[in-house]
Design a protein around this nucleic acid. Structure first.
Lengths: 251, 251
DNA sequence: CGGTGAGTTGAAAGCAATCAAATGGCGTGG
DNA sequence: CCACGCCATTTGATTGCTTTCAACTCACCG
């Protein structure tokens, strides 16, 4: 049975707060339009801004721990983070990957059901739970945006359950690469044919419920078949998207 | 590669509407307290009631099809239903099981991401999407309840991803039985030590990402080990909950 | 120029899937 | 009431995919 402990994750976690709360922050925010705060009225947005703090986290830092009291929530401004759950004996499953404009944390609940760890250096717009929950309760518009986002996350999680439960290694890798190429492109854009993976091989394995060796073998097989190219460890080029889609065995 | 088609699912789907819309319906509703409509003011609740229809569906009937336009949503009043996704070649994964007071359907979206099929005869409180979405937008309290429920569903889905990706057959079965014993008991109650499975062996396999043979073997193994008893095909008795919890390898 | 850690490759083992056949519960019709 | 047939489930034998264990390559860095 696989057992691994990623040392980077066990590094001290406390993110460094950056106490710049001037009102122009949101104006300059790259992700505001897509984030849950995007549709707030100007003065509501300013009020929310006063509740939040910008923080930066380094790759490998864990922002929230599985099972801990849920004391903070945040918007992702920049960077990529993983949500992960694990068994008592150390097997890990990544249950979500979040990108800029995504929301993290568990509002309206007691404890955080999974850990949140930065995969790359990241910037967050952080709120304490109490402040955020209170604001959300009095601003239905925010709650509605959060609901929409949560419904989307749920759809994505359930689609991933099909992958985890019923797809074989080759189909998992193909689906994963297509998903990455789409999600790294961002909302409106078309899928990328070349991109840098924010994940190590081990993390790809943890997303797909595989081992690192199987991920490596499948990827080199696809490289040999000229479906993808792997110029270096972190970059992927999709050479034959049609065939990749075919392998992904879409529903 | 497994491939099966459950004929019962392909039966004609249209649920029979029961046009009893008198105001006393909600008063007598078994699940109102736990459902999303539970905290509405009396007149709001009456207004919502006027938008909904009671329908009954038979075991095996599919209420919504994966990929269809999302035109309805509903509260489950009685019975058990499955949410399922499948690959192009017929492999199926059950991505959720819903019980009385749960909400089904995809509000605020274009298409239904997974099929919804009754496992037992069931009664639903059904709304058209347009009517429900409009009502929800003007009643933040309802939206908030729905958000809480969706957040819970998302947590559950992600916990299941750990099971699908990282647990072996024995652990999957043990986790599943414990989960069932808890969820069939309902909100406040303690877990049941004896219960009737609303799922066939094939459906258990589809929940766990296994084959029917593996489910059968693991369950008879546990029976031989006196951890559970299986007096007949559909009933399960938990004889040694501690050992079952141990096998489940809880996180 | 060795050291380190991520990633790749190879060989073998193991677990669940697949293929195949037997069992048993249940409703129907004689 | 019993025999029959159907279908879900169980059980057995075998296969094969993924894991496991192990060795090796490679890039990067002091």
């Amino acid at each position: 049975m696989m057992m691994h402990f990623d040392l980077a994750q066990t590094a001290p976690a406390a993110p460094a707060p950056v106490p710049c709360q001037d009102a122009s922050f949101c104006q300059r925010c790259d992700v505001r339009a897509r984030a849950i705060c995007g549709t707030l009225e100007e003065d509501d947005r300013a009020a929310l801004n006063r509740l939040g703090r910008r923080v930066t986290v380094q790759a490998g830092q864990t922002v929230m721990w599985e099972g801990d009291d849920a004391t903070i929530v945040a918007n992702v401004i920049e960077g990529t983070l993983k949500l992960s759950a694990s068994t008592g004996d150390g097997r890990e499953q990544i249950v979500g990957v979040v990108y800029p404009s995504d929301f993290i944390g568990r509002p309206f609940g007691r404890s955080t059901p999974h850990s949140v760890t930065a995969l790359t250096d990241a910037r967050l717009c952080l709120f304490t739970r109490g402040a955020f929950d209170g604001f959300a309760r009095t601003h239905p518009e925010l709650g509605h945006r959060l609901l929409q986002r949560t419904l989307d996350d749920l759809d994505r999680a359930r689609a991933w359950m099909l992958l985890l439960g019923r797809k074989n290694a080759r189909e998992k890798i193909a689906t994963f690469l297509l998903d990455m190429s789409q999600r790294l492109a961002g909302e409106g854009a078309g899928p990328l044919d070349s991109f840098a993976l924010p994940l190590s091989r081990q993390q790809v394995a943890d997303v797909l419920g595989l081992t690192i060796e199987t991920v490596s073998r499948q990827m080199t097989d696809m490289k040999r078949a000229k479906i993808i190219d792997l110029p270096n460890r972190r970059t992927v080029e999709i050479l034959d998207r049609d065939q990749l889609s075919c392998l992904a065995e879409v529903a």
